[in-house]
Amino acid sequence: MIRLPPLPTIQEIIRIYGLSARKKLSQNFLLDLNLTRKIIKSAGNLKNCCVVEVGPGPGGLTRSILNTEVDKLIVVEKDARFIPSLEILAAASQGRMKIIQGDILNFDMADVVPLEYARQWQENTPEIHVIGNLPFNVSTPLIIRWLDSISKQCNLWSRGRASMTLTFQKEVAERIIAPPRSEYRCRLSVMCQYLCNVSLKFSIPGKAFVPPPKVDVGVVKFVPRREPLIRQPFGLVERINRHLFHHPNKFCVKSLGTLFPPDREDLIWTMIELSGVGDKLRPFELTNEQVQQLCNAYATIIEQEPDILTYEFRSQKSAKERRQKITRVLALEQRLLATNERTDGEKMQR
């Protein structure tokens, strides 16, 4: 097994380079190497693999990855302050590590993963892994973006069904894996589960991080499915789930009503009938298969009435709110004008 030579500890690196976690970037360092090793072990066997690490910071997880028999490690770091400390690890990695300074939200990982690691989608998972201790403020939008890429088999997933092992706030991790009827069941649960097999590997107490967040952290592994549970475009699935879980504890009829204009209540019942999903179910009770039936029913409706797809409940609601606000302002102005006229009249009489 390849081992790194003796190096300054992470704590020493932080002190030498004057590094600190920035609250506005939701940065929290994990310095306990026992925990970083545990995260890497939960990712699976990394021997001869290509790993993309997201947001390595001062390099805690990076060290544990390099202490495996990983073939190639690519780290993507946005914060330039961490580049010098990562360069120390790169120099000690015997040519296995490459540093890229960039924003992972706008980065195509396929550009840096060699084709030699790729596999066809229907084959076993490729020897490619994504690993990251994600900042809390980007974790949810980032995983939604990557799920979109998985659905389209683009970005890194043009190389095959690459696995991900990522950290999230414990509550977000619980939402990702939540089964039907769970108190954590939400839009994110369905979006993750219809495209990936997801599992919560273990939890880390917040006090293990520097600075310690007010919440614990969950380590979640994602393995893309060969076939999605819902065979509809990602945007359509996301739209259905966004509307469904707008009212997670009310009957589905209430939530689905926001998909259609107020004068098209008939389409709600058409969707219920086509899907075969009972109208007395609540969104958090729905299985992934039942959400699939609803998505298929909605797809059938918009095939027949394409304009329905452009209807936006929120924009209609906003327009209504603006009209109500204007009405209130005009009424207030009229009352003030009437009051001023009475006051002027009283002054003239005196």
Rank of each mutant, 00 (worst) to 15 (best):
A21M: 09
L19D: 05
E87G: 12
L267N: 06
I100Q: 08
W121T: 12
K72A: 06
E346A: 11
N155D: 15
N34L: 02
P205V: 04
I16C: 00
T165F: 05
C192Y: 01
R335K: 14
R225T: 02
T62S: 15
P248C: 07
P262F: 02
P8N: 06
Q169P: 08
L166W: 04
P179L: 07
T9A: 00
E305W: 10
F202G: 14
W157A: 09
Q292T: 05
T9Y: 04
P126D: 11
S318L: 15
S189Y: 06
E321C: 06
H247A: 03
T310N: 12
E87I: 08
V329Q: 14
N106M: 06
A178N: 09
E174Q: 11
S64R: 08
I308W: 09
G278Q: 10
P233N: 06
A162F: 01
F284Y: 13
G102Y: 14
L330A: 08
P213Q: 09
D111M: 10
L229W: 04
Q94K: 14
E341N: 12
R159G: 00
G60T: 07
V70L: 05
M271T: 13
S318M: 14
Q293E: 11
R225Q: 12
L337Q: 08
V172C: 04
S158K: 05
V223H: 09
A173D: 04
A173P: 01
R282H: 08
A80C: 14
G55N: 05
S139T: 11
K38H: 02
F222M: 11
I65T: 03
E312V: 13
T9H: 02
L33R: 08
G59A: 10
F136G: 04
S26Y: 02
E227S: 06
L25A: 10
I14K: 01
K221E: 13
Q349N: 09
P224R: 03
H246P: 00
Q120V: 06
R175K: 12
C252D: 00
R314N: 07
A331K: 15
N249G: 05
N155H: 04
I143Y: 02
K24C: 03
L229F: 01
S42R: 00
C252V: 13
K24F: 03
V190Y: 05
K201Y: 04
I104A: 11
M271P: 00
A338T: 14
T258A: 05
L166H: 06
E289V: 10
M97Q: 11
I150C: 06
L46H: 09
I143K: 07
L256S: 00
K47G: 04
I128F: 10
E12H: 12
M1K: 14
N34D: 09
A110N: 15
T310S: 13
R231C: 10
T310F: 01
E183Y: 14
E127W: 05
Q120C: 07
I99V: 07
L142S: 06
I131R: 00
P212W: 04
T62Y: 03
Y194I: 14
L35N: 00
